Amino acid sequence: MPSETPQAEVGPTGCPHRSGPHSAKGSLEKGSPEDKEAKEPLWIRPDAPSRCTWQLGRPASESPHHHTAPAKSPKILPDILKKIGDTPMVRINKIGKKFGLKCELLAKCEFFNAGGSVKDRISLRMIEDAERDGTLKPGDTIIEPTSGNTGIGLALAAAVRGYRCIIVMPEKMSSEKVDVLRALGAEIVRTPTNARFDSPESHVGVAWRLKNEIPNSHILDQYRNASNPLAHYDTTADEILQQCDGKLDMLVASVGTGGTITGIARKLKEKCPGCRIIGVDPEGSILAEPEELNQTEQTTYEVEGIGYDFIPTVLDRTVVDKWFKSNDEEAFTFARMLIAQEGLLCGGSAGSTVAVAVKAAQELQEGQRCVVILPDSVRNYMTKFLSDRWMLQKGFLKEEDLTEKKPWWWHLRVQELGLSAPLTVLPTITCGHTIEILREKGFDQAPVVDEAGVILGMVTLGNMLSSLLAGKVQPSDQVGKVIYKQFKQIRLTDTLGRLSHILEMDHFALVV
């Protein structure tokens, strides 16, 4: 994948999101292997301009796509893939009243899908469409860049269908997702969380590099694949309309690839034109409109599966009536509230959605109805927002919020430890010299600072030695090549209790 991002070429006709291997024109390309080798690009942008032909009021008969309808489940399912879809609609009884809503608040519980998330729908649909058009064949390999849930859905379907599955996901995604993927037989590649989507090191860039190296491999490409919004247009939206008897006044959905909100909203605009569509985008993402909503100094966020630093091709923002931004604290607070007060075992993005819903639905009156999409299960986040310690460490809970008995030293300040200034190293000294210094002084790690004293990161003896043994660096290389740029900081005025929580999850903390 090139470091400079080429513009994806656009073909003359058809839909841009065809499933299957992508040609340089962004659509299915038939021909000899030699032709494909000559024409197939190194990668295709996940934010390529959409060429979708959908228009409100256009006859369904003019759609270029294969459409399906929700099917009634048999008493005995032939395999677990038949437990994807037909998820329950559940009334939220307490939270709406707590925040003064007059309307009825309903939750579409997508964590009841077989793999635990709304992404099971698009995973199965992308595979079925690729099999139907002859792209996927027995023994082929599926590769997908994902925040985890699409990966789980694909790995689940691949396990049943017999495909090899490789999932490329950023490091910030939970260990629970990784464990589930491994249990399903998927191979996992992790990428830096802070890598831009168009960087060769991003999950998108690495996935395309693997595709170019592995024979008979395919990126189904949830960011561009029409099967993504079509899955929701054909099934999720129809289920909502049936469950609500066609009567709903507002739908609120958090947005990642945009397939969920695009597919549902398009069908609702056709069948229930008075329904307002509300999009939820986390602070630090750029999906919301108008652009002024996205202006923030924050560039990272903890909530998973929603928000991006690019506009995915499948996201149709014209069908969203209003956007709201959400933050991590309210997302996790509301997710825990949904679990504790409503018994809905949902993930953090569901918290984002409901946090926005109780604001947006203030305009609705008694007798009206708001539906929220709860995308995934708490299963993926047992060591994250479900953990009091994690919430404390991230600053989303305060010590006084917890009532468990603490040891005698818990409320003492870090400054009472009488710490001395640490050994520091410059980023320009060599790895070999740094190892000598650390061994001589008896230290395992040291902060790396520039000549102005600005902290650049941390270097550890173990990481340097393993990097040297693996051949990633040489003793003569500058130590700046092996620094940890993500590390926890703590102030002298913070409590030892807070430091204790940090050290339970990290090997060190830097006192500043």
Rank of each mutant, 00 (worst) to 15 (best):
P21M: 13
D47G: 07
G263Q: 00
K177G: 00
V255T: 09
L81K: 07
R190V: 07
L124V: 05
T146Y: 01
I80M: 10
P145C: 04
E4W: 12
D79C: 08
I214D: 05
E187D: 15
G31Q: 05
A159H: 08
K75V: 14
K137W: 07
I122L: 03
W208T: 09
R190F: 01
N194R: 05
Q243M: 09
D140E: 10
R190C: 02
I188N: 00
C244N: 00
L154G: 00
P59C: 13
K39M: 13
I143A: 02
D140F: 09
D129I: 06
Y233H: 09
Y163W: 02
C272P: 09
A195P: 07
R51C: 03
A207F: 00
A24G: 12
H218N: 12
R45P: 10
V118N: 07
F99K: 09
I188S: 03
D234K: 05
A157V: 09
E270Y: 05
G151R: 00
C15A: 06
W208L: 05
E40D: 12
P74Y: 05
L181R: 00
P49Q: 09
D198H: 08
G246E: 04
K82E: 11
G185F: 02
I166S: 08
V206T: 05
S50T: 08
I142Q: 01
P138I: 07
K82L: 07
H232D: 00
A231N: 06
R190P: 00
R58C: 09
K211F: 08
A207M: 01
T191H: 03
M250T: 03
P273M: 14
A158Q: 02
E4K: 14
D120L: 07
S174Q: 03
K94G: 13
D86T: 10
L56H: 09
H203K: 07
V189Y: 07
K30L: 10
S147C: 02
P192H: 10
R58W: 15
L220F: 03
L156I: 06
V168G: 04
I152E: 01
K177L: 02
A114H: 08
G162Q: 07
P12I: 06
G259H: 00
S61I: 03
R276E: 04
R45Y: 03
G20V: 13
D35S: 09
K36C: 15
Y233Q: 02
E29S: 13
T68S: 13
R45H: 11
P138G: 14
G96V: 03
Q242I: 14
G139I: 05
A237Q: 07
G185W: 01
D179R: 03
G134F: 06
V252P: 09
N194W: 11
P41F: 05
P41N: 11
S217C: 04
R190Q: 06
G274V: 03
T87N: 08
S50W: 01
G57H: 09
P59M: 10
V252Q: 09
I44G: 04
K83N: 11
K108T: 02
S227M: 07
T235C: 12
L184W: 00
K83Y: 10
I84H: 08
F197L: 07
A48I: 10
P145W: 00
S254Q: 06
I264A: 02
K108P: 03
I214N: 05
E29D: 14
S117H: 04
M169I: 10
R209V: 09
A24N: 10
A8N: 10
L220E: 01
G57W: 09
E201N: 09
E239K: 03
H218I: 12
I188Y: 02
W54P: 06
A237R: 01
P74V: 14
T236C: 04
K271L: 11
P145N: 02
L105W: 00
S147L: 00
R91N: 14
G246H: 08
A186E: 01
A158Y: 01
P46V: 03
L124M: 09
M126P: 04
G11A: 15
S147P: 01
A71P: 11
K30W: 09
S199T: 10
S73W: 12
I152A: 02
E9I: 05
D120F: 07
A186Q: 01
S27L: 14
R45V: 06
G20Q: 10
L268C: 02
S117Y: 03
W54Q: 06
A159E: 08
E239W: 00
K98W: 11
V118Y: 02
A253C: 07
F111P: 01
T68E: 11
G153T: 02
M89Y: 05
G116D: 13
D249G: 13
S217D: 02
A38I: 04
V180F: 05
L105E: 00
L181G: 00
K83R: 11
A158K: 02
T87S: 07
S61E: 13
K97A: 08
R161A: 08
C272E: 05
C52F: 00
L156M: 07
D140A: 07
I188V: 09
P78N: 08
P21S: 14
D120W: 07
L184A: 02
D140P: 05
S227F: 10
S174C: 00
W43P: 08
L156R: 01
L28K: 07
V160K: 04
V252T: 12
M169R: 07
S254V: 13
N113M: 02
G116I: 12
E270A: 07
S254G: 07
P6R: 05
K39V: 08
T135M: 12
L106K: 09
V255N: 07
D221R: 00
A8I: 10
M250L: 15
P2Y: 07
L77A: 07
T257K: 02
K75L: 13
S175E: 11
K98R: 05
A114T: 11
P59D: 05
P145T: 05
I127H: 03
A157G: 14
G11P: 05
E62C: 15
E110N: 02
T193C: 07
L154V: 07
A237W: 01
L156G: 02
K30V: 10
A237L: 03
Y163P: 01
V255W: 03
I122G: 00
H67Y: 03
P33T: 10
S63A: 11
D79H: 10
P6L: 15
F197N: 06
D179C: 12
V160R: 15
F111K: 04
K271N: 14
E176G: 06
Q7T: 10
G258W: 00
G258A: 01
K102E: 09
E201M: 03
E37F: 14
F99Q: 08
H67W: 04
S63L: 02
I188C: 02
C165Q: 01
R276P: 10
T262A: 14
V180G: 03
L124F: 10
T146R: 01
E201W: 14
E62K: 14
L181I: 06
G26T: 07
C275F: 09
L42G: 15
K25W: 03
L101C: 01
T53V: 11
G205F: 14
G57K: 11
H67G: 05
E110W: 01
G31S: 12
Q243P: 03
F197A: 06
H17R: 08
E4C: 15
S254K: 09
G259W: 00
L154C: 01
D140T: 07
G258Q: 01
A231T: 12
R125P: 06
I261H: 02
D221I: 02
I80E: 01
K97N: 11
V90I: 04
C165A: 05
Y163K: 03
K94P: 03
S23C: 06
K72P: 10
G263C: 00
H66S: 10
K94E: 11
S117F: 03
D234S: 07
G153W: 01
K36R: 14
N113I: 02
W43E: 05
L124T: 12
G139T: 11
K211E: 11
T68H: 15
A195T: 10
C272A: 13
E213V: 11
T235M: 07
W54E: 06
A186V: 06
I166H: 07
A8Q: 11
C109M: 08
V160W: 03
R58K: 15
G31V: 12
P6C: 10
H218G: 02
D221Q: 01
E104W: 05
A237D: 08
A48H: 09
R209S: 11
V118D: 03
F99L: 07
P70M: 12
L230P: 04
W208R: 08
H17E: 11
R190S: 07
W208A: 14
E144D: 06
G205I: 07
N93I: 01
T141D: 09
N225W: 00
A38H: 10
A183R: 02
L220N: 00
V10Q: 09
H218V: 13
V204G: 07
P64Y: 04
D221W: 04
L248E: 03
E131R: 03
V206D: 02
T262Q: 00
S199R: 08
A253Y: 06
E110V: 00
K94F: 05
T5W: 08
M169G: 01
I95M: 10
P33K: 10
K108E: 06
I122T: 01
A226K: 10
F112C: 01
G96Y: 07
K267G: 08
I122M: 06
E40Q: 11
R276W: 12
P64Q: 06
D140I: 05
A24D: 08
S202H: 05
S3Y: 10
